[in-house]
Design a protein around this nucleic acid. Structure first.
Length: 477
RNA sequence: GCCCCCAUCGUCUAGCGGCUAGGACACGGCCCUUUCAAGGCCGGAACGGCGGUUCGAUUCCGCCUGGGGGUACCA
C-alpha cells in the first residue's frame, strides 16, 4: 500500500458553471464526512480555468448550497483563475525536465489528424509530432511569438498502476494515454495541470471525485511523478444517475439543491438521501444523524456501480426526519412558510401536523384555517352523500347549539357531545364530522377535527358553523 | 472505433464458497380510524447469459450481453 499524506485533507472542487446538483452535493458530502471522521480538513476549490463556461453567481450559489447542507469548509476557497502564474511556473519546470513539450500544431491540423484516425478506426490521440522538436528550436519559436500549448510527454512504454480506494487496483497501458494539453494557448492551465499543482500545494491527502476522472487518473499520477511530488490517494466514486439512467441533469427535477430547500425538504433529509446513494453502513439502519454518518462512513463501502436517484425515498426520508424533530424546532422551520403565524402560534399546533407532513410546504394548507376563516365557504362539499342540504343545515344548526351550551371546551368534552348529537340526528359520526370539518376548516382533508376545534376556541368554531349554515341555507333555499 | 469502470427485487442495498438470498423505498391486502396521514401485520418482487474452478457457486476466473464513463487548448 502506497504511502499517503497525513493529516487528512480533502477538497470539493466544483467548476462554477452552474448550480450545486445532487451528484455534486454527494461528492462534496463524501469528502466532508471523510474529513470530519479523520479529524482532517475539508477544503473548497473553485476550478474556473475554463473562461468560456463560467456562469456568474455560480460560485455563490454552490457555496450557499453547501452551507444549507451543513458542510463547512475549513480554509478560504482556492480560486484557480487567481493562480495563473503558479501554473505557468510549474509548466516551465516540466518543460525544462523534458516531462512536457511545446506543441505548435494548429487546431486545423489536429482536426484533420483526428479525421484520418477516425477513418482508419484508430484511437484519436495527438500524434506527438511536436514532441520531436529540439528544445532550441522550440524556445526560438516561442520567443518569436509563435502560439503554442504545452503538452505532457507521456512515457511510451510500461503501464501505470494504482490502487483506487473505491475501484481497487486499476491498470492503464501508457501507450493508450494521450499527450494531453497542460497549458492552453491563452496561458491558462487545463484541469490536469491545475489539479496537480493545487492538490500538491494545499497538501491534499485524498482525492475523492467523480469516476469521470478515472481515465485521466494515470496521467495525473504521471504528472505527480514528473514533479517528484508524493501523490494523493485516489477514490473515484460512481456517478448518480436520473431515473432514465442518464447522468443527473437539468431535466431531472431539481437541478439545484436549493430547490429542495424551497420545496420544503430538510437539509438532514437531503444529506441522508445522498449519503445512501451508492453507500451504506453495511447494517440495516436506514436513517442516520450527521454525527452517525461521520462515525460510520468509509470509502471502502462505496458502491462501485452508478446509483439511480430514487426521489420517492427522499420524500419518505423527509417525512421521517420531520417526525423526529422536536416540536418547537419544527415550528421554527415552518414559520417562514406561514407568514400569517408566529413561531409561538405554531408551537401548540405541531402535534396535529407533525406526523402528517412529508414536506414543510404541506403545512400552510393544513394549518391555514387556524389563522383565517375559510373563504369562500365550500358549500357544495357541505352535504354528505345520501343526505340533502336541508338536513345538513339542520345538523350544522344543532351542532352549533350543542356546542354553545357545552361547559367543557376540550377534546374530551367536545367529542362525546358530538357523537351523541349524531345519534340523535340518525347520522353516522363520520358524516357529521365531515360536515363540521368542511364548515370549520374549509377543506375535506385536515388535521384531526376534535383537537383542532379545541384549539381554535369556541367563539371561532361557532362563528364558522353559523356562517356555513347560512351559506348553505342561502344556496339551497 | 479505442481505453477504463461496473452488473443481487422496479429503485437504494446486505451478502465477501454452503443463507428458506436479509432490510428499506415504491406497490397490493388487512388492522387501527372522524378525513388525511402516521403506525402495525401480511404479500408479490432479484442473483443478466454461457462456460470453467470446486464436493458445492450470488460469491472466484474467462467470454458474451447489458449499463456507465472517457476519448477537447471542458471540468
Amino acid at each position: 500500500m502506497a504511502e499517503t499524506r497525513s493529516p487528512v485533507r480533502v477538497r470539493y472542487a466544483p467548476s462554477p458553471t452552474g448550480a450545486l446538483h445532487l451528484g455534486g452535493a454527494r461528492t462534496a458530502l463524501f469528502n466532508y464526512l471523510f474529513a470530519r471522521q479523520q479529524n482532517g480538513q475539508f477544503l473548497l476549490r473553485i476550478e474556473d480555468t475554463d473562461r468560456a463556461r463560467l456562469k456568474p453567481g455560480s460560485q455563490a450559489s454552490i457555496e450557499e448550497g453547501l452551507g444549507w447542507l451543513g458542510m463547512t469548509w475549513d480554509e478560504p476557497p482556492v480560486v484557480q483563475s487567481e493562480r495563473k502564474a503558479a501554473y505557468q511556473q510549474a509548466a516551465q519546470v516540466l518543460l525544462e525536465s523534458g516531462a512536457a513539450y511545446r506543441c505548435f500544431c494548429t487546431p486545423q491540423r489536429l482536426e484533420q489528424m483526428r479525421a484520418e484516425q477516425r477513418a482508419r478506426h484508430e484511437p484519436e490521440r495527438y500524434d506527438r509530432r511536436c514532441r520531436a522538436i529540439p528544445r532550441e528550436e522550440s524556445d526560438r519559436r516561442a520567443a518569436a511569438g509563435e502560439g503554442f500549448v504545452v503538452r505532457q510527454a507521456i512515457p511510451l512504454e510500461g503501464s501505470t498502476v494504482f490502487h483506487d480506494l473505491v475501484m481497487g487496483t486499476v491498470t492503464f497501458r501508457n501507450d493508450t494515454l494521450d499527450d494531453h494539453v497542460l497549458l492552453k494557448s491563452d496561458g491558462f492551465p487545463t484541469y490536469h495541470l491545475a489539479f496537480a499543482v493545487d492538490d500538491h500545494e494545499t497538501r491534499i491527502s485524498h482525492v475523492i471525485r467523480g469516476d469521470g476522472w478515472l481515465p485521466s487518473a494515470p496521467k495525473h499520477l504521471l504528472l505527480f511523478q514528473a514533479f517528484h511530488w508524493l501523490p494523493p490517494a485516489f477514490a473515484h466514486v460512481p456517478l448518480v444517475l436520473g431515473p432514465d439512467k442518464k447522468p443527473l441533469a437539468k431535466r431531472h427535477g431539481a437541478k439545484d439543491v436549493l430547490e429542495y430547500r424551497d420545496a420544503g425538504y430538510l437539509p438532514e433529509a437531503v444529506d441522508n438521501f445522498i449519503a445512501f446513494l451508492g453507500w451504506s453502513p453495511g447494517t440495516e439502519e436506514d436513517i442516520l444523524t450527521i454525527e452517525q454518518l461521520i462515525a460510520k462512513f468509509s470509502l471502502e463501502k462505496i458502491q462501485t456501480s452508478p446509483a439511480i436517484a430514487n426521489l420517492e425515498r427522499l420524500e419518505w426520508l423527509n417525512g421521517q426526519l420531520i417526525r423526529r424533530l422536536p416540536a418547537d424546532e419544527l415550528a421554527a422551520r415552518l414559520a417562514p412558510k406561514l407568514p400569517e403565524a408566529s413561531v409561538e402560534d405554531l408551537k401548540p399546533l405541531m402535534p396535529l401536523v407533525q406526523e402528517r407532513l412529508r414536506t414543510l410546504n404541506e403545512a400552510p394548507e393544513m394549518l391555514r384555517f387556524f389563522f383565517r376563516d375559510p373563504d369562500p365557504v365550500p358549500v357544495e362539499q357541505l352535504t354528505p352523500k345520501g343526505k340533502d342540504p336541508a338536513a345538513a343545515t339542520t345538523a350544522l344548526d344543532r351542532a352549533a347549539s350543542t356546542l354553545r351550551d357545552l361547559p367543557d371546551w376540550t377534546a374530551e368534552g367536545i367529542e362525546p357531545a358530538l357523537r351523541e348529537l349524531a345519534e340523535h340526528l340518525g347520522w353516522s359520526a363520520r358524516d357529521l364530522f365531515m360536515v363540521l370539518r368542511v364548515a370549520i376548516t374549509g377543506r375535506t382533508v385536515t388535521p384531526p377535527l376534535i383537537e383542532s376545534m379545541a384549539r381554535l376556541g369556541k367563539d371561532r368554531v361557532l362563528a364558522r358553523l353559523e356562517r356555513a349554515g347560512s351559506a348553505l341555507a342561502e344556496r339551497s333555499g
